[in-house]
């Protein structure tokens, strides 16, 4: 329990990951599924960025007095998550576009109703 509290970033991100994962799996509504997907992705971003953060150090932007390598946090996870966010945004946009298409074709965005109607 104590370890969970000291590593609260990781704990929170794993809990969020679980919430997102289950929302993605259980809900029938496509919009809720996409929200779940976003929560899941965001939790991973939190995890990564928490890994790169070192307390009491500055953001890695060099201004007038250069403080040496020790003065700044690890910029790699932040840079990676920037890529991750772009990827997540594109996937979300694609999924939402498909959801609109689904609504046009089936008249509903509940996955169970779609599966019933779509029997070929």
């Amino acid at each position: 329990m104590e370890r969970l509290i000291t590593n609260y970033y990781e704990t929170a991100s794993i809990i969020l990951f679980g919430i997102g994962f289950m929302t993605l799996l259980i809900h029938n509504n496509l919009i809720k599924k996409i929200i779940g997907m976003n929560i899941m992705d965001t939790s991973i971003f939190l995890f990564f960025i928490a890994k790169g953060y070192i307390s009491a150090k500055e953001a890695p932007i060099i201004r007038a007095p250069y403080m040496g390598v020790e003065g700044y946090i690890n910029p790699v996870p932040t840079a990676l998550m920037l890529t991750g966010i772009v990827v997540a945004v594109s996937v979300t946009a694609f999924a939402l576009a498909l959801t609109i298409k689904i609504y046009e074709k089936y008249g509903t965005i509940e996955l169970n109703e779609i599966l019933e109607k779509g029997g070929d």
Binding site: F17, F21, L24, L25, M37, D41, I44, A95, L98, L115
Partner: peptide
């Protein structure tokens, strides 16, 4: 119609998969 359905199913499951890989 069916393509969009199959595509949504594929996209949701594969983004689930990539989330797990990223974790």
């Amino acid at each position: 119609k069916e393509n969009i359905k199959a595509g949504v199913k594929y996209l949701i499951l594969s983004s689930l998969g990539s989330g797990l890989v990223l974790m």
